[in-house]
């Protein structure tokens, strides 16, 4: 069996990729995808840890995270659609009404 620590390393890499992408990219859709990558990195950790510890708690938490992520995506995409309709733009840099 693959040891849990390997999964943890994988997770940290995935999480870092997501976090870096979120900071480096300005396209809102890509930023949303990066958040999903981060959340799924956490899911992988939890599943690995849950299996390592032979618990169900972690698996339950994973289901909750997936459900909440779906709700989050619904709100995020709704906002993107509204913004796009208004400005024809989905790059965060272009929204400069609020400043100071």
């Amino acid at each position: 069996m693959i040891p849990v620590s390997w999964y943890l390393v994988l997770t940290l890499f995935l999480f870092a990729i997501g976090a870096f992408g979120f900071i480096a990219r300005r396209n809102v859709i890509i930023m949303l995808m990066c958040i999903e990558i981060m959340l799924n990195a956490v899911n992988v950790t939890l599943v690995a840890l849950g299996r390592g510890l032979a618990h169900t708690t972690a698996h339950v938490l994973v289901f909750f995270i997936i459900a909440v992520a779906a709700a989050e995506a619904a709100i995020g995409l709704a906002l993107v659609v509204l913004l796009f309709k208004k400005t024809r733009e989905i790059h965060m840099d272009e929204f400069r009404t609020l400043k100071g």
């Binding site: 949303l32 981060m38 989050e72 965060m92």
Partner: peptide, 16 residues
Amino acid sequence: LEGAMKYFLLGSFASA
């Protein structure tokens, strides 16, 4: 909308 989008993105980022 812009305020909501910024809040949403950073809020979800923090949740992760």
